[in-house]
C-alpha cells in the first residue's frame, strides 16, 4: 500500500473538480479587486495600495479557503462520496490533509492575486517576501482548518455558509485590518486576540509595511497553535460524528 498515491489523487481530483473550475478562478480574481476598490471608495483620505495589501491578502485567503472547504466537504458528505474516502485504507489524518491541501493551495494562490495587481499599481520594494510567503502559507493552513472545523460541525451546505460567516465577519472587523487593535474598546480586544486572523494580518503588516504590533515569533506560534487545535478538533469530530 502506497498512501501517497491516495493522497496525491485525492488532491488532484479536488483541484480538478472544485478549485480549478472557472467560477472559482474568477472568484480569485474578482474578490481582491472588489476589496481594493471598496477601500478606495470608502476612505475619506488618499489610500496607499501598499497599506491595503496585507488586509486584502488576508481576507482573500480567509474567504477563499473557508468557503470552498466547508462547502465541498459538506457536499461530498451529503452525496455519500465522502464515505468512499473514509473506507480507503489510509489514516484519517492523511485523508483530511489530502482534502485540505487543495484548499490551502487555493488560499495561497488567492493571496498572491492582489500582489500582482499591487505590483502594477505601485512600487513593492522593501517587502520581506520570505515573511510574506511564510505568513500566507500559515494563514491559508489555519483558515482551511477553520473551514474543516465548520464542515464537520454542519450537515447541510447552506449551514456551512451561514456558520462560516459566524466566524468570518467578526474576524473581518476585529483582526486589526479596518480598525487598529489599539483603537478597539478594551473589552473587545480579548476577542481580537482569540481570532487567528489577527496574528496572520499582523505578520503581513510587518512584512509589507513594518507596522505590525505583535512580536513576529508570537504571531507564528499563535497561528501554529490555532492550526493544530482546529485540525485535531476536526479529526476528533470526524471520528465521533462520521465514523459512528
Amino acid at each position: 500500500m502506497k498512501p501517497w498515491i491516495a493522497f496525491f489523487n485525492i488532491l488532484m481530483k479536488d483541484m480538478r473538480s472544485y478549485y480549478l473550475k472557472p467560477p472559482n478562478i474568477s472568484w480569485g480574481l474578482i474578490f481582491p479587486v472588489a476589496w481594493t476598490l471598496m477601500f478606495f471608495l470608502r476612505s475619506p483620505v488618499a489610500v496607499e495600495v501598499r497599506d491595503l495589501l496585507p488586509g486584502v491578502m488576508a481576507l482573500s485567503i480567509l474567504f477563499g479557503t473557508t468557503s470552498m472547504l466547508a462547502v465541498t466537504i459538506t457536499f461530498e458528505r451529503k452525496s455519500r462520496s465522502f464515505e468512499r474516502l473514509l473506507l480507503a485504507p489510509i489514516s484519517l489524518n492523511l485523508l483530511m490533509l489530502a482534502k485540505t491541501s487543495g484548499a490551502i493551495m487555493f488560499g495561497i494562490i488567492n493571496a498572491f492575486v492582489p500582489v500582482i495587481f499591487a505590483a502594477i499599481l505601485t512600487n513593492l520594494s522593501g517587502i520581506n517576501w520570505l515573511m510574506v510567503l511564510a505568513s500566507v502559507v500559515l494563514i491559508a493552513i489555519t483558515s482551511t482548518f477553520l473551514g474543516l472545523f465548520i464542515a464537520v460541525s454542519v450537515t447541510q451546505v447552506f449551514e456551512a455558509q451561514t456558520f462560516s460567516n459566524f466566524f468570518r465577519f467578526p474576524m473581518l472587523f476585529l483582526c486589526g485590518l479596518f480598525i487598529p487593535l489599539a483603537d478597539l474598546p478594551s473589552f473587545i480586544r480579548p476577542v481580537s486576540y482569540a481570532l487567528p486572523l489577527t496574528y496572520g494580518a499582523d505578520i503581513l503588516k510587518t512584512a509589507v509595511s513594518q507596522n505590525g504590533v505583535i512580536a513576529v515569533p508570537l504571531n507564528f506560534l499563535a497561528l501554529l497553535l490555532f492550526s493544530g487545535f482546529l485540525f485535531a478538533y476536526s479529526i476528533y469530530n470526524v471520528n465521533r460524528k462520521w465514523i459512528l
Binding site: 500500500m1 502506497k2 498512501p3 498515491i5 491516495a6 496525491f8 489523487n9 485525492i10 481530483k13 468512499r84 474516502l85 480507503a88 485504507p89 489510509i90
Partner: peptide, 8 residues
C-alpha cells in the same frame, strides 16, 4: 480514482 485510493 478508486484504484488510487487503494495505492494502485
Amino acid at each position: 480514482f478508486c484504484g488510487a485510493l487503494y495505492g494502485m
